[in-house]
Amino acid sequence: MKEIAVEPGGVRVLHKTLDILETIKATESGYRLADLSRKVDLPKATVYRILATLEGRGYLDRTSDGSYRMAKKLFDLQRTEPLEQILNRVARPLMERLAAASKETVNLGILDAGEVVVINTVESPQAVRMSSKIGNRRLLHSTALGKVLLAGKPDKEVQRLIRMKGTPRLTGQTLTTKAAVLAEVQKVRQQGWALDNQENELEGRCIGAPIMGPDGSVAAALSISGPVFRMDMSRARALVPELKAICEEISRGVRG
């Protein structure tokens, strides 16, 4: 078993914690408990307690396969500029470009307390449009932004988030069962974008795609929304490549 040399005045558990963090940081895919225990040469029970504490405090994320990865909060510690501020700064000009090209409303949203909160918006120049305001909150299960944010989380976290606000019916199109929402989340993961087909608001259709943060996880979501008479399914699908390209450009800017 590895013997950790502790400098005078040092704290043994902090050395163990830093060994674990430095090991996880060295890989993008993360480590499972057993693999990490072998890598740092520490008992599995010790490693588990440290991982559970770091995850509980938001410094590590656990993926659907049980691997632990660095979380956004840990990267935020070394930033002089908060991630939300970086997102707004990087995304705004690209959102304006996307809104001008699509002539529809573009929204930037993040996950907060089990809901989507809009942190930036560029409204369509057209008289009839889908309107939004910064600070607006929306449910996860009924919106393209929300589905994208759910798709970026492990299945257990998805279920926890769904339980927080439930799946109330907002229109006749809303997905209202856990099974239906989970199936939709899996579809979003596979295709890389989400659709709100009049599920949050009648006569409104919306597509969304993910923006990746510095740690490689979904940090935010970007959407294009418009009235169904103008944004039929064919046009919605045609806008997906441009939306995803803008999201990739924002992701690169956020990573710096």
Rank of each mutant, 00 (worst) to 15 (best):
V228G: 01
A220C: 10
L195T: 07
I207S: 00
E201H: 04
D215Q: 05
I211V: 15
V228E: 11
P227C: 03
A209T: 03
L195Q: 12
S223W: 04
Q191R: 14
G204A: 15
P210S: 08
S217W: 06
R189S: 01
G216W: 06
T167P: 06
A180I: 15
V181H: 03
A179Q: 13
R169P: 13
S225T: 13
E203Y: 13
L170A: 08
I211G: 01
G208P: 10
R230E: 02
T177W: 15
P168H: 04
T167W: 11
G172I: 07
R205S: 01
M212V: 13
V185S: 03
G213A: 09
V228A: 06
I211N: 01
R189Q: 15
P168K: 04
V218F: 05
R163W: 07
E199G: 00
A221E: 07
I207E: 02
W193K: 05
T174C: 09
P168E: 13
C206N: 08
G166S: 14
R169Q: 12
C206W: 03
I211Y: 04
T174F: 10
A180H: 14
D215T: 05
Q190A: 15
A221N: 06
I211E: 02
Q198H: 05
G208S: 09
G213N: 10
S217C: 07
